[in-house]
Write a protein that binds this DNA or RNA. Structure first.
Lengths: 336, 336
DNA sequence: ATTTTCTGCGAAATCGATTGCGATGGAAAT
DNA sequence: ATTTCCATCGCAATCGATTTCGCAGAAAAT
């Protein structure tokens, strides 16, 4: 059903129908009513492709998220959505899974929806410069590590915390309180990922304190979910029951770890301290409250949007922002 | 920049360019290379509106979620996405906020993206039949209560648990274990919502057990978040320190409540038992493990998609599915 | 009564692609 | 030397809307 059908059935020209549909003044009340009646009767909806062809489409930007499941992203997404809306854009959200490669997804998304720009949230960014160029759309990475390493800073925009530095800070926090046998819980779902950066921070903190790296204290789960974190911690505990501190690379992993410690007979923080990075809402309600480095989730989202808008409307210059996390001292860490 | 520009710059007709772009065989290697070179050089991307005008666009269905923040929806969304993809459709995700009215949002979404159908997830559905008709697109409600009451069962498709019955079951679980002073923690962000249905179930269970309703044991938080649940529980505790059981209408509220109980000097479950509904992942990692009625999250999503596909491709008949929740007995409930 | 001003309306151009069909040319077959 | 065939390519129609422009005819001004 097209506008022509409406025109015929209501005895006017397509122009008039179009005018009615777009609230143009140049149409009589009688015709307007007649056309509207037909439109309603036939449940006619204008073809948006045809419409967009003539009228420039409303500006939209896309958000590609890997694993909406992670509660950490929730607040970020919310902030992004608000900022995007405030700037007069529409947000199209696209979820991808870990198995997928997000480049094609992002590209097809951008193509299909005529997006002005893209925000890539939560994933790893190990693309070659060629693949980035192939995207051919302004984009910014949010909490999105580029571990490919070969990219210059001007190759893309990004906003995130300094993963390595913050991880170092978290581990140093434990070391300062006398811990020496500190385990790390990380996940290896994505090579060269945030996990790797935080692992480097862990190593760095140990090194600075003169503590040799003990591979037995490194537990790498195969999956980025709580069940894996739980069983990983259980294995860790069996291997090294003498550990006194645990650094989890995410709050949700820390939560699962605390449960595993508890079930394994370890009290937190009396027997083992736990620290993490993220600052998801629910971690404040753990018993004891999780000590963690809170990422500025709202700010991450807002800044990401700002960077993207700069790219789209402004200078078009790539920038890389590193925000600071804030330590929340809960009850999960104790000096030994 | 249009296909015509590409054609001119590479010295061929638009047809040839189009053929190159669409991998048609009827084009020489020389031309193909030349055109591709120009395309890359100019970073040309075909206008999808124009393309869609000629070629029918891939089928997409939309998912309108109120508050992606709620971790309960995560698994549902994942299941929906998978099912949608498996059926050969694309999923467009649209987040809305509690302040917004989701009807216009959904309608504009459907219109703008030419969606074949809509899934409304997690919200309340108090629309009049007229407003539903105005949507004019196949849709199904998933975990989406219709409390308007005036709608016949054939007016729309839906899938959810039987909120009232499951709430009754949860509260009965406490009553069977000897509890009589059972509080309920609910939220009133949305009138006539899931919260209301679960409240009815609470009342029903009490009534069946001959326990009079005590308004002091009913705590209605103003916001659907954990902070509100925490302070609500604190108020509750101050008002009625003699309570022995607590029914939270969601897992995340239960988590906050457990923290408030703990901070208020009540041990769970020794002093107060806690039960909830939802079954979010993290609730299994609480200490003690939260006793809850687990909603079949994957099944909810899968069934929702199935119902929608029936509407789109099949009989077009509206159906209403009620799935069963499964009791998980954690450590948060104890007999008195 | 004639001219001028509006109001409404329709014909047709336009947006940027895809594609059927016919034309062209050279290679192969006769 | 014709004829046939096949591989390429371009013309033009088409998709479904919006919008400019000009033309009617009624209303207002002269």
């Amino acid at each position: 059903m097209t506008i022509k059908d409406i025109a015929e059935k209501s005895g006017v020209s397509v122009s008039t129908v179009s005018r009615v549909l777009n609230d143009h003044p140049d149409v009589s009340e009688a015709n307007r009513a007649r056309v509207m009646a037909v439109v309603r009767e036939l449940h006619y909806v204008p073809n948006s492709s045809a419409r967009d062809l003539v009228r420039p489409q409303p500006d939209a930007i896309g958000l590609v998220v890997r694993g909406v499941g992670n509660p950490f992203y929730t607040a970020v997404i919310r902030a992004i959505e608000q900022a995007v809306r405030a700037a007069g854009y529409t947000l199209v959200l696209h979820q991808i899974h870990t198995e997928d490669n997000e480049v094609p997804a992002a590209a097809s998304l951008a193509r299909a929806k005529k997006l002005r720009g893209l925000i890539l949230l939560g994933g790893c960014f190990d693309y070659t410069p060629e693949r980035i160029a192939a995207l051919d759309v302004p984009f910014v990475c949010c909490s999105f590590t580029n571990s490919f390493g070969t990219l210059e800073r001007t190759a893309y925009s990004s906003v995130s915390i300094d993963d390595q530095a913050e991880a170092r800070r978290a581990v140093a926090h434990l070391i300062e309180r006398g811990h020496r046998r500190i385990a790390i819980l990380l996940d290896s779902t994505c090579d060269h990922s945030i996990s790797q950066l935080r692992y480097r921070g862990y190593c760095q903190a140990l090194e600075e304190a003169g503590i040799p790296l003990d591979r037995e204290l490194v537990e790498e789960t195969s999956d980025f979910d709580m069940a894996a974190a739980y069983s990983g911690t259980a294995r860790l505990l069996k291997r090294r029951p003498d550990l006194t501190g645990l650094f989890a690379i995410s709050d949700s992993m820390a939560v699962a770890a605390m449960k595993a410690l508890h079930d394994g007979g370890k009290r937190v923080p009396e027997d083992c301290s736990v620290i993490a990075i993220d600052g998801i809402d629910i971690s404040a309600y753990m018993i004891p409250t999780l000590t963690t480095l809170i990422q500025p989730q709202e700010e991450l989202g807002e800044k990401a949007v700002r960077l993207l808008l700069d790219l789209i409307e402004g200078t078009g210059e790539n920038r890389q922002l590193r925000l600071q996390a804030a330590l929340r001292e809960g009850g999960s860490v104790r000096a030994v």
